[in-house]
Structures are given as structure tokens and as C-alpha cells.
Design a protein around this nucleic acid. Sequence first.
DNA 1: ACAATAAGATTACACGCGTAAACAATCCAT
DNA 2: ATGGATTGTTTACGCGTGTAATCTTATTGT
Lengths: 126, 126
Amino acid sequence: MSEHIRISEAEGAVMKLLWEKEPLSAGEIIERLQHQTDWSDQTIKTFLNRLLNKEAIRFEKTGRTYLYYPIVTRDQYMKAENRSFLNRVYDGAVGLMCAKFLEDEKLSESDIEQLQQLLDKKRKDG
Amino acid sequence: MSEHIRISEAEGAVMKLLWEKEPLSAGEIIERLQHQTDWSDQTIKTFLNRLLNKEAIRFEKTGRTYLYYPIVTRDQYMKAENRSFLNRVYDGAVGLMCAKFLEDEKLSESDIEQLQQLLDKKRKDG
DNA sequence: ACAATAAGATTACACGCGTAAACAATCCAT
DNA sequence: ATGGATTGTTTACGCGTGTAATCTTATTGT
């Protein structure tokens, strides 16, 4: 069942673009990525192809241009990555993990408030 | 300068043992890991060797037995993994990441309380 | 002292991924 | 219709990793 599609880091960069705006043509994807990275167009095409093979994205051929759409959602991706990270590094100990992040990373005021609200809600009906 | 030692998932399992109790002999490490995994002893020896080469661990030869010690600390490891995960998946957005974890994962009462205290403290003197 | 055993070192191999060149197919412009 | 440009497909290659067999060296029992 859907056999746990694994999206690599570089492939993730492509997916992020498609999650922002869908669909995108190969040209658009290449252009945007070349602003952020130093990948050649061929390299980016490779990633598109691998994502197609993994069925993480699909395309629709409208006349001359291929338009790409994500199949895997950002939410699915984040959830899967979270799980594997949490288990790999923290053996599933969410509390420890969050604590470590809060300890090391800078959070804005609004981040903090937002998290406090989430925690409150979780305490009530979690 | 310490050139960012990258510890793989399987190697991480070895490190975790050494972070729990230090030092350990190869035999002890092999025995413990074979309870948790289905790796052969040779496989585990490979990981020990790679960790030695990466200088993530070291050993002391006391008579016949090699005793292994971690060089990289658990804290260094968690910090590095956190950073790379945060950037890879969330482009550095800690708030978003924590929110996603809180949304998807179960936290115990005490986890929640602990985190709330951390957030309080962070808001004050962060 | 020597054979058996144990422990570490070396070598191996397939697969995913980052990286990209080479090749093929399609379409526009002339 | 044809050649160049565009875009997609195939092939390639080195490195890290999971997986382990084999080789070497050291230790220990007899």
C-alpha cells in the first residue's frame, strides 16, 4: 500500500516548489531551483524523473508543455520525515526531542506563543 | 576542525549503546545489538570500524580486549541531527516543525508540562 | 609449542543519491 | 518540410551505507 515513498533531500527541494505552486513546468522548476542552488538543468531533470518513477509527482501534457503536480502532499511528507527522524535519533521520545530543539534553536515570540497555545489545547483534549 | 562527522542510522545504534554505558567491549556491543536487530556480528564489526575511521569512537586495548569509548557526544550528535533535519525538511522553521510534531505525536502529561515550563523560561530570558 | 578460537582489518557488493552527459523526441520558425 | 531549440529519457559514475564474507593476527587451552 503506497510502499513508503522515500523523497531524498534534493528531490525534496523540487517537491517544495510544487507544494508552493502547482502545477509548474519543468522550465519553471529549473529556473527557480537555479536561483537557490548550483544544480545544472540536467541534474534537476533527473530529480523530476526520479520523482515521477516514485510516483511522488505526476504530469499533464498540455500541448507542448508538461505540467507537474505533486501526488505526495507536504503533510504526508512532513509526517513521514518526522517519524523517521524521531525514531532514528530519539528512539521515539518526542518530549526529549522537542526539549532539545527548544534548547538549541532560536524561537520568535510569536513562535513561542503559538506553541504554548498548542500545548494548552493538547492538554485539554489531547 | 572536526569536519562534521556524519553518523549513519546503523552507526547511531552503536553510538547509543556507548552513550548509555562506556566503555563497552566489541563482544558486549555485538550481544546487545543482536537483541535489538538481526545484524550479523560481522556487520556490527563493520560499523565499529567505520566509527573508528570517522573518529566518532576510540578504543583502549587492555590486554586481550578492546574497550570502546565514544568521542562524539550524544549532545553533539543530537544537535547536528536536529540542524540538518530542520533545514532539510522545514527550511529552518522551528515553529512549524514543533507544531507539526505536537499535532501528530502523542505526548504524555508530563512531557507537556515540561515543555510548557521550557517555553515559559524561554519567553522570559530567551 | 601448536592448534583452535576470538577479535580486528580488509575486501566485496548492491542500492540510493548527487551529479550530469548523451541521446531521443517534439515542436516552432523559416 | 527541415533544422534548431526545447524538453523528456537513458545511461553513467563515485560515494555512503547496509550487509557480510574472508583474511589476518593475537590469545588461550592442551
